[in-house]
Every structure is written in structure tokens, then in C-alpha cells.
Amino acid sequence: MTLIQPVGALSFMALSVVLFSLGLYGALSRKSTVMVLMSLELMANAININLVALSRFSAPAEMTGQFFAVFSMVVSAAEIGLGLALVLALYRQRKTVEIDAMQELKG
């Protein structure tokens, strides 16, 4: 067995799972809203890796996954802009960005 083997689809997907899990953990556990948004970015990028990798190993000629990844990044950029703007607006009102402070809709 050799130490270096050709990098397969499984390796990319493993990386994607690790990244996604880290993002999910962050999104569920961080107190700061900014950190939660960053974790969401991690999860989105994990999916982007998945898209590119699966496209590269299944139908490289069409490059569908790459196109999707580019779209996804653009949407993520827009989303994070909006999210940070919301965080700024919240901070101006409440002087905090702690996610636990936002419980007005509790039933």
C-alpha cells in the first residue's frame, strides 16, 4: 500500500462533512450572532465543495457543479451582507449581539 493515493470523491466528501459538522456545531453553540453567521458560511462552503467534487467525478464535461458553486457563493455573499446588516441594526437597538437575548417570540 502506498502512502499517497489518488484523491477520490470520497476524500472531498469527507472534507465536506467535517466542514459542515464544524459549521453546524458553531451555528448551534456560539453565543455571538456574528459567529453564528460565520458558521453558516462554513456550512455553505461545505456544500460548495460537495457540488464541485461530485460534478468533477461524475460529469466533468458539463461543469454543472462549478456553475452551481459560483451561484451559491454569490448568494452567500448577498446573504451574509444582509445578515451583517441585520446584526448591526440589532446592535444599535439593543447594544448586544448575543443570540440568547432575542427571545421575544417565545410561546
Partner: peptide, 17 residues
């Protein structure tokens, strides 16, 4: 059922996941 509705976003996220 109202106990689920704790109001914390991350709790909802957990449920969803």
C-alpha cells in the same frame, strides 16, 4: 407543546437538524 417554543433560535435549529 409550548415548552418546545422556548424562543431561542438555536433550539429551533437543533430541532430542525
Amino acid at each position: 407543546v409550548r415548552r418546545i417554543q422556548v424562543g431561542r433560535i438555536q433550539a429551533y435549529q437543533g430541532l430542525m437538524v
